[in-house]
Amino acid sequence: MKRILISPLFLTVGLLISCGPDAETKELMTRAGTLFKPLPAVMPGFEKVTPQQIELGKKLYFDVRLSVNDTQSCNTCHRVDEKLGGVDNNQFSNGAPAGTIGGRNSPTVLNAGFHLAQFWDGRAADLTEQAKGPILNPVEMAMPSEEAVVKKIGAIEEYQTLFKGAFPDAKEAITYDNLAFAIAAFESTLITKDRFDDFLGGDAKALSAEEKKGLKSFMDAGCMSCHNGPLLGGNSYQKMGLLNPYANTKDLGRYDVTKKDADKYFFKVPSLRNVALTAPYFHDGASATLEDAVQQMAHLQLNKKLSDEEVKSIVTFLGALTDKERDR
């Protein structure tokens, strides 16, 4: 019997071919790559932030002294500690004054600087403008004025040093604008990394077979018509109840900002990055589970009735959008 010798090079090439993505996965990767993109490494507008500004912003973000009665920080409603998803997981958030409560569900702060605007109704253009709002909002942190904030923070010796280090060329380092920018600078670092980005980058094994099936179901159902781009959302406004009316007609959404009738019930399309961590869902927090949210969105926005299997499949895929450091 003749012995057949196979060269190491042939074995290596064969192994590489066998380990490559199959045709179905290749097609899925190509299709997904036309609709979605990995998250950029830096948020726009924060390319030149300094470590000192980020350090200051992080301290301010977690400091309850920014509220009128020293009970509430930015992190109270937008929790990034304990591997949470940048939210408090409440339908509506409690304010600093006893008995006050917000009127909309707190959106995640993770990756927020990539959005086309801030807040559900887009009333703030960027992270810095957004940071100014809750501190003065009477049902949130309830500080009476910008001047009161500057006076309170400016009296703290540690902040005197930190602000000077963060804004060394400023005539007055401790200003409300600088305070807001520093918070935004810290928030600009809250960029998450998930397995879907790895998949988009060419790693066919980054998603399980069930997650790939869910991605296909997500696209086949038409979810990507609104949830597309690097954030899978966050880049447009859409009417809540596009094809079938939504039950909550009290919140007029973007109309409150523009006063245009055409904007009634329009809200910023939320990003689906880390969506498995951010229940409850919708601007009014009325959907308790991701399964319910997927089913409702299919009905309201696409006029489709998804099967339980389709919902489960899509939800499985959405789990792959969770930050690796927060995946639990």
Rank of each mutant, 00 (worst) to 15 (best):
T30W: 10
E55W: 05
L116D: 01
L231M: 15
F36W: 11
S271R: 13
E172W: 05
T50P: 00
L272K: 01
G229C: 11
L302S: 08
L243N: 13
R273W: 08
D169W: 05
K26T: 12
E325T: 14
F10P: 01
T249F: 09
W120T: 03
L5W: 12
M224K: 09
G319E: 08
L290N: 00
L16P: 00
I174W: 00
M240S: 13
R65V: 11
N137F: 13
A209E: 15
G122M: 05
N178Q: 06
V149L: 10
Q130W: 00
E24F: 07
G229Q: 08
D22I: 12
T278P: 00
F199I: 02
A221V: 10
Q52I: 06
I183L: 09
V149I: 14
E210C: 04
G122N: 07
T192E: 10
T30G: 13
L290D: 03
I191L: 12
F10Q: 14
T12N: 06
N228R: 14
E82Y: 13
I17R: 12
R31T: 14
A182W: 00
Y61V: 11
A112Y: 06
G201F: 06
K213V: 06
L84R: 11
P40M: 01
S73E: 12
A32W: 01
L300Y: 13
Q301T: 06
T278Q: 10
T25L: 12
L116M: 15
V13D: 08
E325N: 15
V257D: 02
A98H: 08
G222P: 02
G95F: 02
K304I: 11
P168D: 07
G95A: 02
E146W: 05
N244T: 14
E309C: 05
T100Q: 04
T30L: 14
A117G: 04
F163D: 01
K239T: 14
